[in-house]
Amino acid sequence: MTIEFPVSEAHLTALRESLADRADLGGDLGVAYRTLDTPLGALLLAATERGLVRVAFEREEFDRVLETLAERVSPRILRAPGRLDEAVRELEEYLTGRRTRFDLHLDHALSSGFRGEVHRHLPEIGYGRTASYAEVAALAGRPRAVRAVGTACGTNPLPIVVPCHRVVRSDGSAGGYLGGPEAKAYLLRLEGAA
């Protein structure tokens, strides 16, 4: 490939894709990422060879999220949009009301201990339903750990896909959300749970 200067956006895109393909084939790619524009704003999606490892809202500062992935998952991070095509398709279907559950492979590398237990139980809360923090604590086998469930939801590395937005306060009010109160309200309305 001949490169002319200044380098066009098309050439840069082709170079990035070529680099991502080579890294993927050589087993050198630890984390692939891309961004996706949604009604909730831009999302950053990241995956390892095991599955989707991170969904981040723009308010979390994507550069900080990538730094954390480099520290905790792999320093070999590359923008490789093609590796996340399935995640993009399923998220788009969900956000347009055509999907009620995700079938993606997930990498729970960022979820451990009790938080990990909570994250693994969240998909048991069905589409269009909500559960209180106390109910989720009971599901996770620690009925008195209500505050810890709130912390687990607030640190969920896979929001939307692992539905922490379905967890509400005992009085039925929304409670906090990593993506902000507007995002939580949007998702609950989308599912008909609000």
Rank of each mutant, 00 (worst) to 15 (best):
P157A: 10
L44G: 11
C164G: 14
R99Y: 09
I160G: 01
V146Y: 00
E17G: 10
E4P: 09
V7A: 11
A131S: 11
R89A: 15
L29R: 06
D21Y: 08
G180S: 03
V167R: 00
S112I: 02
I125H: 02
D85E: 11
G41I: 09
R144M: 13
E135S: 13
L66Q: 01
L122E: 02
R54N: 03
S18N: 14
E17P: 00
G41S: 06
V73M: 04
D171H: 09
K184T: 07
L190G: 02
A87F: 02
R50C: 04
L190W: 04
T151H: 15
A145M: 00
P81A: 07
V168G: 00
R142H: 07
V149P: 02
R101F: 14
G51E: 06
R147P: 12
H119F: 05
V149R: 08
R166I: 05
R147E: 11
H119L: 06
L190Q: 00
T130D: 04
A193R: 00
S112R: 15
R147A: 13
C153R: 03
S173Q: 10
F102D: 05
A20C: 12
S74L: 07
G51V: 03
R76N: 08
A32T: 01
G113A: 07
L158E: 09
L78T: 01
E117K: 13
